[in-house]
Design a protein around this nucleic acid. Structure first.
Lengths: 352, 352
DNA sequence: CAAGCCGGTGTAATCGATTACAAATCGCTA
DNA sequence: TAGCGATTTGTAATCGATTACACCGGCTTG
C-alpha cells in the first residue's frame, strides 16, 4: 500500500515542464496556454492570470524546436563572413546582430574561409529550414549560389552587403566605392600631387574593380597620366601593403602619393616604409579606405574614406527582414548605395 | 472525365519534398529512408542505392526543426561576446566557429553590449532548446547565470573563455594573466627601468585584477616601489590609453615605462603622446597585452604579451563539445590555463 | 529438423507546440 | 424569452523526422 505512492509517476517533478504541465496546473487546455503566451488579447483576463501564474510556478519555457516545426520557420538567419578575424567585418556583424536580435531573430555565423566543400555546405542552412534568410558579406559566394540555383533549389531571402554580384538578382547594400576612390584621388590632387599610385585589393573582387576604376576615372578627369607600374596588385591585408612598399621603394620614379584600397594596406605600407626611413606624409602621402577604428590613432593618423559600417549592417538586416516578412519591396530598392566620406587626417600633405 | 485528372493533387510537384516523398519514390518506408541517411550501415546496399537515388531525384533535405524536435537537441551553440566589434574577440570567435562547424554545430552569436533586460534574455537560449551549450567570453555575465540558477533553472553545458568567474563552478579556458603581466614587467626591469607604471582595464574585471596583481607582484619581487599615482584606471579601449597619456603627461615625476593591460590602450597612449611630441621608446617604453594583428605593424611595432587566441577558441569549443556529448570530464581540467609569450618589438628600450 | 539468432524492413508512436475548427458561454436585442 | 453575434475555450490535427518495437526470412547450430 505504502509503496504504491512511490510507484506513481512523479508528474510534478518532470525534467522540463511542457505546455501540458502548465495547462494542467492552470486547469485549462494547452491551446489556451499557447494563446496566452502568443496572443494574450485573445484570452480573458481571468484565465490569462491563471496561466501566467502556472507558467511562473512551473518555470515553463516554450520549446523552440517544436514551435519552429509547427510555424515552418526557424527564427534565425545566417551571416556569411569572409575572415571573421577582420575587424571591418566584425563591426558590420555587430550591427546586423543588434538589428536582428531586436526583431527577435538569432544570428548564425559562418566563416567562408573554408575549403570548397564546406562552402557549398553553408547554403544548406537555407534548404533545411535552419535559417530563414542570409546576409552575404562575401561576394565570391555568388558562385555557390549560382550552382545551387541551377540545381533547382528554391530561392530564399538573401541580401548581399558590402560586396555584391551582378550575376544574380539578389538585393544588395553597399557603399559608393567608385566615388569613394575618386574622392581620395581628388584630395591628393587638390594637395598638389600629380604622381599618384594605387594599391589594389584582391583580383576578381568587385570592390577592387570599383575602387580601381574610381581611381583611374578621377586621374583621367584631371588629365593626369595613369601609369601601370604605379598600380600595384594586392589584397586587403597588411601584408599586401608591405609588399607594395617594397615595390614602391624599388621604383626609380616614385609616386608622391598612394591611394590604398583598404586601411590595412595603408598600415602595412606606412609601417614598412617607416622601417626604411621613409616618412609619411613628409616623403609620401597615403590615403586609406574603410576608416577602421585604429585609423584615427595610427601614427600618423590616417586620411581615409569612411564607410558607414553600422548603417550598412543595419540596412542589410532591415532589408532581409522585409524580404523574410514578405513586405512589398516597392519602397525597397534592390541596390542600396550608401554614401562615403573623406576623413582628412595627417597621412596626407602637399608634395615636397 | 477529363477534368478529373486535373483534380488529382499534384503529388509530385510538392513545394518541398519530405521524407514521405522520398519513401514513395524509392518504394520503401520512411524509416528506411531515415536510416539510410543517418546510419547507412544498417541498410542493405541495394535499398541504400535506391534511396539515395530517390533523394537525388527529389532534391530532399531533412528538415532540421523536425529532426531537432525528435532528437531533443538543437545542433547549435551560443557564443556570448562583449563588443563584437573588437578584433580580439572576433578572432577567438573565428576559432570557435571553425571547431564547432567541423563538429557539425552551428554557432549563434549574441552581443552582451545590450540593455540589462536583453542580457537576461540571452540565457533563454539554453532554456528553450535553441542551443545545446554556450561559450561565454564576458565574465560579467556571471551574475545573470547566478540569477538564473537561483531561479531553479537546470544547468546546461557552459564554458567560460578568456574571462571567468569564481562565483560559479563552470569550466573555463584562459591564459595565465598573472605571469603575462609579470613577464612584461620583468622585461622592462631587465632593460633597466625602475619607474614603471600601469594602465589597467575596466574596474571589476577579472583580467584587470589578475594583470594588475601580476604587475605589482613582479615589482615587489624586484624590490621596486609601487606608486599608486603611476597606476591608472581605464578600460581596454584606445580612449583609455589617450586618457592615461594625458594623466601621464601632467605628472611631475613620470614613469619611464608603462605596462598596458591591452594593445589598444597602448596604441591610444602612444598615439596621444606622439601628438604631444613624446617619442616611444625614446622617451618612454610601452608594453601592451594581447598581440592583436596590428601590434606588429604599429609605429613603433609594439612589444606585447601574446595570447594564443586561436588555441583559446579551439580549446573552449572542444571543452564545450565534450560537455555536450557527456564525455567523462576526468581528463578534462576544469580550468585550462594557456601559456602566454613575451614578444619583444620596438616600443621598449633602455631608459635614457 | 526445430530452435535461435540476425540482418533488414515496416508500422506507428513520439518529440512539443500551434492553430483550424467546433463548441460553449455570455450579453443583448427584438 | 428566443435568437443572434461576439467572445472565450477546448479538441484534435498538424508540422516532419526519428526510432522503439515487431516482424519476416534466411542461416547457423544442436
Amino acid at each position: 500500500m505504502v509503496e504504491k505512492i512511490n510507484l506513481e509517476p512523479p508528474a510534478v517533478i518532470r525534467n522540463r515542464p511542457k505546455i501540458q504541465d502548465v495547462a494542467r496546473v492552470a486547469g485549462v487546455s494547452t491551446a489556451t496556454v499557447s494563446r496566452t503566451l502568443s496572443k494574450p488579447e485573445a484570452v480573458s483576463k481571468a484565465t490569462r492570470d491563471m496561466v501566467l501564474e502556472a507558467v511562473q510556478a512551473t518555470g515553463y519555457r516554450a520549446d523552440h524546436a517544436a514551435r519552429n516545426l509547427r510555424r515552418r520557420r526557424s527564427g534565425a538567419i545566417v551571416v556569411l563572413v569572409p575572415n571573421l578575424g577582420n575587424p571591418f567585418f566584425s563591426q558590420i556583424l555587430a550591427a546586423i546582430e543588434n538589428t536582428m536580435s531586436a526583431a527577435g531573430y538569432s544570428v548564425l555565423i559562418a566563416d567562408t574561409m573554408q575549403p570548397q566543400f564546406r562552402k557549398q555546405q553553408i547554403l544548406e542552412h537555407l534548404h533545411n529550414n535552419s535559417a530563414d534568410g542570409m546576409i552575404v558579406l562575401d561576394g565570391s559566394m555568388a558562385e555557390e549560389f549560382l550552382r545551387s540555383e541551377t540545381a533547382g533549389i528554391a530561392a530564399s531571402p538573401v541580401v548581399f552587403a558590402c560586396e555584391w554580384t551582378d550575376k544574380l538578382r539578389y538585393p544588395s547594400v553597399r557603399i559608393d566605392n567608385h566615388s569613394g576612390a575618386a574622392m581620395a584621388v581628388r584630395h591628393l590632387i587638390d594637395l598638389g600631387h600629380c604622381k599618384i599610385g594605387h594599391i589594389a585589393g584582391p583580383a576578381h573582387n568587385v570592390l577592387t574593380t570599383a575602387r580601381r576604376e574610381g581611381f583611374k576615372a578621377e586621374l583621367k578627369a584631371s588629365g593626369l597620366k595613369i601609369r601601370s607600374e604605379w598600380d600595384f596588385d594586392g589584397d586587403f591585408s597588411i601584408e599586401a601593403g608591405i609588399q607594395a612598399a617594397q615595390s614602391w621603394f624599388d621604383l626609380d620614379n616614385r609616386p608622391t602619393a598612394m591611394f590604398c584600397a583598404s586601411d590595412e594596406i595603408a598600415f602595412g605600407f606606412i609601417s614598412e616604409l617607416n622601417s626604411r626611413g621613409i616618412r609619411v606624409p613628409d616623403d609620401v602621402s597615403v590615403v586609406g579606405f574603410d576608416d577602421i577604428d585604429i585609423a584615427r590613432h595610427f601614427i600618423p593618423p590616417l586620411t581615409t574614406i569612411h564607410q558607414p559600417r553600422n548603417d550598412m549592417g543595419e540596412m542589410a538586416a532591415r532589408k532581409l527582414l522585409a524580404n523574410i516578412l514578405g513586405v512589398a519591396s516597392a519602397d525597397q530598392q534592390d541596390k542600396l548605395l550608401l554614401p562615403v566620406e573623406l576623413i582628412v587626417r595627417k597621412s596626407t600633405a602637399a608634395p615636397k
